[in-house]
Write a protein that binds this DNA or RNA. Structure first.
Lengths: 246, 246
DNA sequence: TCAAAAGTGTTGACATTACACCCATGT
DNA sequence: ACATGGGTGTAATGTCAACACTTTTGA
């Protein structure tokens, strides 16, 4: 199994989501191309994290490799959501320039397998990152390269459907969280607003969301109860689906 | 845009579902390899319909091309559901023999984009097909090549989730259908049994399932009312999701 | 006249919604 | 003492699940 050369027309892209300051964020890498002669910056924009698949490498492994490189973690939620294979997905001039310069052996028809990843953003801070990597709120995205705007939108859609069937939201929260954080996260991903009392009633029925003997500290209001998610209890008691709505 | 050579490590596979005799079926193609010298048949098995993606071809177009070739139709439901990219997905001896003989230029690491397609099987009869193509009930599948068993399982899972959010079941029925056929189809895909009265109550609320002034003919029992699905009405009245359960 | 599937309503249990006040803390 | 978000219960409404008998047709 060779792991040296890359499969030139196949890549993976990871859409890495985090939750911070009451908003859903996505991890992006700054891309800058300089003129080879003058050194002038030709353009600046952002892309999600991707890389070509290597010869003899499973595509899931390629995605994990990218994830590890950008976040330092490799045991976090990662799932394929869509494959982007239109011939015209690389059509902007700056994308063509970029590829011609950085990957001269690559054609303009690159098929990309999109992966959705969820991380606890308290663990992945921009300053601990690769210097060009930072978080952006999904409703305030900068100029994006390739078809990465479409990819992010599609990943979000995937996420919205998925969190209503599986307990994925906890991947976006610290191990210990409050019910307000949890509610806020749902409201933010699904774009709805939920009644606090009804939300808590529902959570109360979920035995795998467990109150600790512990309270928030240092907040200028009544400190909230702290909860954890137990996958163990979840696996033993799971129903057909995991739905906070309906 | 060249359309001649193929991208050797990328293919599409179409899982084509049909509904017949109260069972969900999948369209498979017989594969037989003969010994080049003796002419003896080395093995016989079945595969879903796939083909390599051509240079300069959108992957969705590649899937439509395969679909058109095998069913004669091209305006039918077709959606990507998963991409299979493990390096060991071609590991059985007969698959290696097959590739060595038929596609000598292809490596053993082929990434395949899986597409799910739904057809009205009354329109796609085995005898009108390519001679080696026929329908198999999904619970009575023959020996399958490559990882096509896994693909079919994954496509089924995709379908089960999807039909609870979108009105796809009608793609599997003739234009005119009875409520019993519809109920039977749900029971069959979802693996549940539904109460007839409750089912009909629910359908009654869906204004886009419309009774015609027409009844079944030639049946040895009370003839059933005939219905059609109106996508037009659906688009104007659709809710968040389309769910026959819950 | 029989067999086979179509068609039809009600009730009790349960789940969902809507809604307002007091509590604990830091500043 | 005040601002901030945490925490709590009930009543009305809507939805779901369970259930049995009559109808229409062809054989």
């Amino acid at each position: 199994m060779l792991m040296t050369s890359l499969i030139s027309n196949l890549s993976v892209d990871c859409i890495i989501f985090g939750f911070d300051s009451g908003k859903l964020h996505v991890l992006l890498t700054k891309r800058e191309l300089e003129d080879e002669v003058s050194g002038q910056i030709l353009f600046t924009d952002y892309t999600v994290q991707g890389h070509h698949v290597l010869e003899g490498e499973n595509i899931d492994d390629a995605a994990r490799r990218v994830l590890k490189e950008k976040t330092g973690f490799d045991n976090i939620y990662l799932e394929q959501f869509h494959t982007f294979g239109n011939t015209d997905r690389i059509h902007q001039e700056r994308d063509k320039l970029w590829i011609a310069r950085k990957y001269p052996m690559v054609t303009n028809h690159v098929v990309s397998v999109g992966y959705c990843s969820l991380v606890d953003s308290t663990k992945v801070k921009p300053d601990t990152q690769h210097q060009f990597t930072s978080w952006f709120a999904v409703d305030e995205l900068p100029l994006l390269g390739f078809d990465h705007g479409i990819m992010i939108e599609k990943a979000l859609e995937f996420l919205r459907v998925k969190i209503q069937r599986e307990p994925l939201v906890f991947e976006l929260l610290p191990e210990k969280f409050t019910l307000s954080q949890l509610q806020n996260l749902y409201e933010c991903i699904l774009g709805v607003s939920l009644d606090r009392r009804n939300f808590r009633k529902k959570i109360g029925q979920m035995k795998f969301i467990i109150a600790l003997n512990e309270k928030q500290k240092g907040v200028a209001h009544k400190p909230a109860q702290v909860y954890i998610f137990s996958r163990d209890v979840y696996d033993r008691t799971k129903k057909e689906k995991f739905d906070i709505l309906t």
